[in-house]
C-alpha cells in the first residue's frame, strides 16, 4: 500500500553509488496479514495495520523484535491504510472508517465511522502532515483535514463499474513529495493525476495502463489485477505505477509483476518492466532520494523486493522475502527497508 510519508531528503546526493544487492537481514513473524505500514520515531519503529483489525508496533532495532498491539481500539475489518502525522497515526480499513491514534500509547483520538461507503484501500498524507487523502471502493477520493478530521473534498471521476459491468475498485493513491500532485489508480488500469495544492483537485492527467487489468471473458468470466501501487519521483516528474501483467489463469497471482513509469505531464510512458521470475502484484513502490533508482515490492504466494535503475529501467538486484509483501517502509538513508505482508515482516538491506 502506498503511504507516502517519509519526508524526502531535500538535497539528493547525486554521487551516491547505485545499490547492487537486496539482502533479507531478518524476518519477524506477525499475528496476521499486514496490509500497510508506517515508520515511527525513531524510524526503526514500524507500525503495521493487520488483518486482526488492529495496529501493531515493531521495534526493529530491538534484539528480538516482537510485534506489540497498539492500544485497545480497533477497526471492524482489515486495516489497509496507515500514515503518520507527527506523533499521531491515522489508519483506514475495509470497514470504511478512519481512526486517529496517539502513536505513543495507542489511544484513539478520533474516529470517523463512515468515512467511505465501501472498503478503504489506501491513504496518503501531505509532507506537511496537514492533509490526508483516502481512496476506497466507493470509487471516491476524499481529502481530510488532519487536525480537525473535517472532510475537505470528495471526488468521483473513476468509473464505478468495470467495462464488463462489475464493481470497480480504487486501490492506489500517492502524493508528490512537494504535495502538489495527487495520483489515484483503479482496477481497470486508469490513473488520474490531480492538482492537489489548495485542494482544487482539477484533473491534470489521465494515464491508461490497460495491461494491469486482466479480464477473462471466456475461461473464467471474471477479472484480476488492477493498479496496486503508485509513487511520484521526488522531483515530481515521473510517476511509477505497479500491478501485474496479463494473467493466463486468473485463479492465481501467476502473472508477471509489472511496473510502468511515466513522464506523466507529457503523457509519455518511459518504461514497461515485467518480471516473470518474481511474479505477482507490485504492491509498493518508492523512489530513492536521488530518483536514480526505485524499489518495487510485492509478490504472489511468496514475496519479492526488486530495485531498478530508473534511467534505463534496468534491474539492479532483487530477492525473495518469504511471503507476499503488501507494503514497505524505506529508511531515510535508503540503505534498508522493512517489508510487511503475509504473517511476517522482514528487514532488507540494500
Amino acid at each position: 500500500m502506498p503511504t507516502d510519508l517519509e519526508p524526502s531528503s531535500p538535497e539528493p546526493v547525486a554521487t551516491a553509488p547505485l545499490p547492487t544487492q537486496v539482502v533479507v537481514d531478518a524476518t519477524y513473524s506477525l499475528p496476521g496479514i499486514a496490509f500497510c505500514c508506517a515508520a515511527g520515531e525513531p524510524p526503526t519503529t514500524i507500525y503495521a495495520g493487520l488483518s486482526d483489525f488492529a495496529i501493531h508496533r515493531i521495534d526493529t532495532a530491538a534484539e528480538k523484535p516482537q510485534p506489540i498491539r497498539l492500544g485497545e481500539a480497533s477497526h471492524d475489518s482489515y486495516v489497509t491504510g496507515l500514515v503518520r502525522a507527527g506523533d499521531r497515526l491515522i489508519s483506514g480499513g475495509y470497514d470504511g472508517a478512519l481512526i486517529w491514534w496517539n502513536a505513543a500509547d495507542g489511544e484513539q483520538l478520533r474516529r470517523i465511522e463512515t468515512a467511505h461507503d465501501k472498503w478503504i484501500r489506501g491513504l496518503a498524507i501531505t509532507p506537511d502532515a496537514t492533509r490526508l487523502v483516502s481512496v476506497a471502493d466507493d470509487m471516491r477520493t476524499k481529502v481530510w483535514d488532519v487536525a480537525t478530521g473535517e472532510q475537505i473534498a470528495d471526488w468521483g471521476d473513476h468509473e464505478v463499474k468495470t467495462p464488463q459491468g462489475y464493481p470497480s475498485m480504487l486501490y492506489a493513491v500517492a502524493l508528490s513529495s512537494d504535495g502538489q500532485w495527487l495520483a489515484t489508480g483503479d482496477k481497470t488500469g486508469e490513473v488520474l493525476v490531480r492538482e492537489f495544492s489548495g485542494a482544487a483537485g482539477s484533473i491534470v492527467a489521465r494515464l491508461q495502463t490497460p495491461v494491469m487489468y486482466t479480464w477473462d471473458p471466456r475461461a473464467r468470466n471474471h477479472s484480476i489485477g488492477g493498479i496496486r501501487s503508485l509513487a511520484f519521483s521526488n522531483d515530481g516528474q515521473s510517476l511509477a505505477i505497479g500491478g501485474m501483467g496479463k494473467v493466463n489463469n486468473i485463479d492465481h497471482l501467476e502473472g508477471p509483476s509489472r511496473l510502468e513509469i511515466f513522464d506523466w505531464q507529457a503523457g509519455v510512458k518511459l518504461h514497461e518492466i515485467e518480471d516473470t521470475q518474481f511474479k505477482g502484484l507490485v504492491e509498493a513502490l518508492r523512489f530513492a532520494p536521488d530518483d536514480r533508482w526505485l524499489i518495487a515490492a510485492g509478490g504472489d504466494h511468496s514475496g519479492f523486493v526488486s530495485i531498478y535503475e530508473v534511467g534505463e529501467g534496468k534491474l539492479l538486484a532483487q530477492s525473495k522475502t518469504g511471503s507476499h509483501v503488501h507494503d514497505i517502509s524505506l529508511a531515510p538513508d535508503a540503505t534498508s527497508l522493512v517489508t510487511v505482508g503475509h504473517q511476517q515482516a522482514t528487514k532488507v538491506l540494500l
Binding site: A219, R220, N221, I224, D251, H252, L253, E254, D300
Partner: peptide, 10 residues
C-alpha cells in the same frame, strides 16, 4: 453455471 469461483488468489 456461473464460473469460475476458484479463488486460490485474490
Amino acid at each position: 453455471a456461473r464460473a469460475w469461483w476458484d479463488s486460490h488468489g485474490q
